[in-house]
Amino acid sequence: MERKKFLKSLAIVSTTGTVLQSCTNTDQKNKTEDSLQVGFIFHSVYFWLKDGITEEEEHDFLNFFEILKKISGIVSFHTGKPAATNPRPVVDNSFSYHIMLVFTDLEAITSYEKHPDHLAAIEKYSKYWKKVEVKDTLIR
Score class of each variant (00 low, 15 high):
residue 1 M to H: 15
residue 2 E to S: 12
residue 5 K to Y: 00
residue 5 K to R: 07
residue 5 K to Q: 13
residue 6 F to N: 10
residue 8 K to Q: 11
residue 8 K to E: 13
residue 9 S to M: 08
residue 9 S to T: 02
residue 13 V to Q: 13
residue 14 S to D: 13
residue 15 T to K: 10
residue 16 T to C: 07
residue 17 G to N: 02
residue 19 V to P: 00
residue 20 L to E: 15
residue 21 Q to E: 15
residue 23 C to T: 15
residue 23 C to L: 15
residue 24 T to M: 14
residue 24 T to G: 12
residue 25 N to P: 11
residue 26 T to F: 14
residue 26 T to R: 08
residue 28 Q to A: 10
residue 28 Q to G: 13
residue 29 K to D: 09
residue 29 K to P: 13
residue 30 N to K: 14
residue 30 N to S: 15
residue 31 K to D: 06
residue 32 T to V: 05
residue 38 V to M: 03
residue 38 V to N: 04
residue 38 V to P: 00
residue 38 V to H: 11
residue 39 G to T: 00
residue 40 F to V: 00
residue 41 I to V: 05
residue 41 I to Q: 12
residue 42 F to H: 15
residue 43 H to W: 01
residue 44 S to C: 14
residue 45 V to K: 04
residue 46 Y to M: 13
residue 46 Y to L: 04
residue 50 K to C: 01
residue 53 I to F: 06
residue 57 E to N: 01
residue 58 E to G: 13
residue 59 H to L: 13
residue 60 D to F: 05
residue 61 F to G: 06
residue 62 L to R: 11
residue 63 N to V: 04
residue 63 N to D: 11
residue 63 N to I: 05
residue 64 F to Y: 08
residue 64 F to K: 02
residue 64 F to C: 00
residue 65 F to C: 00
residue 67 I to A: 09
residue 67 I to V: 08
residue 67 I to G: 02
residue 68 L to R: 02
residue 69 K to C: 01
residue 71 I to P: 07
residue 73 G to N: 02
residue 75 V to W: 00
residue 76 S to G: 08
residue 78 H to T: 05
residue 80 G to A: 11
residue 81 K to R: 15
residue 81 K to C: 12
residue 82 P to K: 06
residue 83 A to S: 14
residue 83 A to W: 05
residue 85 T to L: 15
residue 87 P to T: 12
residue 88 R to D: 05
residue 92 D to L: 03
residue 95 F to I: 12
residue 96 S to N: 02
residue 97 Y to C: 10
residue 99 I to M: 10
residue 101 L to A: 05
residue 102 V to K: 03
residue 103 F to T: 03
residue 104 T to K: 15
residue 105 D to S: 12
residue 105 D to W: 11
residue 106 L to M: 09
residue 106 L to W: 03
residue 106 L to I: 12
residue 106 L to F: 06
residue 108 A to S: 11
residue 108 A to Q: 06
residue 112 Y to I: 06
residue 120 A to D: 09
residue 121 A to N: 03
residue 122 I to W: 04
residue 127 K to E: 02
residue 127 K to M: 07
residue 128 Y to D: 04
residue 128 Y to F: 08
residue 130 K to A: 09
residue 134 V to Q: 11
residue 138 L to F: 14
residue 140 R to M: 04
